[in-house]
């Protein structure tokens, strides 16, 4: 088996004295869709923030494409080809949709491809092209998520981490966004989906990691594990 694209080894992350992630170990193979599921407070978001460089790990190692990226700041990690779509979209609300997207091509290597990437994003989300001169703060929740996804795509990533992208969205919109994510994956980008909804995660992903109380307690392909075992790990019973 070839080396996984992203390797997380025993990562610990703290806020002050509070340990949000005690020891997380997981692999993400190239070109796959991988789900990270767990209940509220399991430490999923903290782990994503830590991988993307928003939060410094207090122990453990993170390798991306064989390179040690542990403790690098977010602005460096994005240049390695690893992008995060943070929880709650986090659009630049006082900037237009197009300015938001162009911000995604801020890294030097992405700037050359800016026009091309922009075309790709508009193809994926035609509604954004329609609204490209609107302030992103005026968009609906689903559209903001599209902006956030598009913005991440503009950085020319080889892997995108999606942190609870379905949070607070209507089921039809979630379905639509998931379809787009599959499309992005087909174009060759590795995907990590953070989810609370086990069912949806199992349906979409080729590999599932379950987090409980700051640890990855179960990993495997959904068809090998079965929904019951995953649910047990999820609730810790």
């Amino acid at each position: 088996m070839s080396e996984p694209m992203l390797k997380v080894e025993g990562v610990q992350a703290k806020y002050g004295d509070f340990i949000a992630v005690s020891s997380a170990t997981l692999d993400v193979p190239e070109k796959q869709i991988v789900s990270l599921i767990g209940s509220n407070g399991a430490g999923k978001s903290t782990l994503m923030d830590t991988i993307a460089g928003l939060h410094k790990p207090s122990a453990g190692k993170i390798y991306f494409k064989g390179e040690d990226i542990t403790g690098l700041p977010a602005e460096k990690i994005v240049t390695k080809g690893l992008a995060l779509v943070p929880q709650g979209s986090r659009c630049f609300v006082r900037m237009t949709v197009e300015d938001n997207l162009i911000m995604g091509s801020f890294p030097k290597f992405a700037r050359k491809k800016c026009a091309e990437s922009l075309e790709r994003v508009y193809e994926l989300f035609p509604v954004l092209k329609e609204k490209r001169n609107d302030l992103s703060g005026s968009l609906s929740g689903g559209q903001r998520q599209m902006v956030a996804v598009g913005r991440a795509l503009m950085t020319n990533p080889e892997m995108i981490l999606f942190d609870e992208i379905s949070l607070g969205l209507a089921p039809t919109i979630i379905k639509d966004i998931y379809a787009r994510i599959k499309e992005i994956n087909k174009q060759g980008t590795t995907i990590v989906l953070v989810e609370q909804d086990t069912h949806r995660a199992i349906k979409t992903a080729e590999l599932v990691h379950v987090m409980l109380k700051g640890q990855v307690v179960l990993s495997g392909a959904p068809k090998d594990l079965g929904e019951d075992e995953i649910k047990k790990a999820y609730f810790g019973i």
Binding site: L54, A74, E75, A83, C91, F106, A152, T155
Partner: peptide, 24 residues
């Protein structure tokens, strides 16, 4: 300009800006 946009982006959301490669 890219630099100008990055300044506005930072003013909106520093973390999201750093995810775009901006050194805050």
């Amino acid at each position: 300009t890219y630099l100008g946009r990055s300044i506005r982006a930072t003013s909106d959301d520093t973390e999201a800006a750093s995810l775009m490669g901006v050194n805050v």
